[in-house]
Design a protein around this nucleic acid. Structure first.
Length: 268
DNA sequence: ATGACCTTTTTAAAAGGA
């Protein structure tokens, strides 16, 4: 089974690219972030025609997550329990969507950005990650054989080498100690960030700003990750960052991260 | 060439992104 995660930065603007990607990379399950549309606006038909079931969670032009699967799509969960809300009128945002696909509990995650260290969005980000971590612990405590994949745009650069120039990011979000601790806490809970296991190299980014020739200069960030639960980790046989997807006109600013999972021991 | 922001919505100008 091939499982991919991709912050697509509008599914309506990039449905054709998504379809081409699914076919080119032979993807079974695709977790999307920043779909930027309401559920009713999601371009379902083309994906259904290609053989995928679709679960969406979107309220507006902001955020939005989805999961496409051709190996089953069950127990869909829009948002996690007690997901922290945000806003003047506190509301849960469309940043997490769970579904069971081919025996794997997939969570498509769009972690809050944080905006600035003194912004309320930053405290929201840390609380959001901590609540998710508690769930991650509980899920494997309840069932040590649970195959859980927490995939998406984590909006955290765990290592200094995950940003193209640390001097630029000093005092900014994504690289602060609390954010990195919140990210590392998933590993302390027994999960493994498998992209790092398979791709330990530096300057292997997943995001490049549209501005200032960041992509051709390879000035990017590594912020899209895949944490797998103890039972799932040994089944992950490979990980690829699809850097080519950033090329050409009409690319998202993020590229997909693809996991190859050994099907033979995963029952649907 | 891998190329000089993009997407959305109250269709102009602003917000969010990282």
């Amino acid at each position: 089974m091939r499982l991919a995660t991709w912050n697509i930065n509008s599914i309506r603007a990039r449905a054709d690219r998504a379809l081409a990607f699914l076919e080119r990379e032979d993807i079974d399950v695709l977790a999307l972030q920043e779909t930027k549309c309401k559920d009713a606006q999601f371009p379902r038909e083309a994906f259904e025609a290609a053989g995928y079931e679709i679960a969406t969670f979107g309220f507006s032009q902001w955020n939005g997550v989805a999961i496409l699967s051709r190996v089953g799509l069950d127990d869909v969960e829009p948002g996690f329990v007690e997901q922290p809300p945000f806003g003047e009128v506190p509301a849960v945002e469309a940043r997490a969507l769970g579904a069971t696909c081919g025996g794997v509990r997939v969570w498509s995650l769009y972690v809050p950005h944080g905006r600035a260290l003194d912004n309320p969005h930053y405290a929201y980000k840390l609380a959001w990650l901590e609540r998710l971590r508690q769930h991650a612990v509980d899920w494997v405590a309840a069932d040590p054989q649970a195959k859980v994949a927490l995939v998406g745009d984590w909006n955290v650069a765990p290592l200094d080498t995950d940003v193209w120039d640390m001097a630029v990011f000093e005092g900014q979000t994504h690289v602060s100690a609390p954010e990195r601790a919140a990210f590392a806490a998933f590993a302390e809970a027994g999960y493994t960030e498998v992209s790092r296991e398979f791709i330990p190299d530096e300057r292997k980014y997943t995001y490049w700003d549209y501005q200032q020739l960041r992509f051709p200069k390879n000035e990017g960030l590594r912020i899209d990750f895949a944490y797998t639960s103890p039972a799932l980790t040994p089944l992950v046989k490979g990980v690829k960052i699809d850097r080519d997807e950033r090329k050409g006109k009409g690319a998202s600013d993020h590229v997909p991260v693809i996991l190859d999972i050994d099907d033979s021991q995963v029952s649907a």
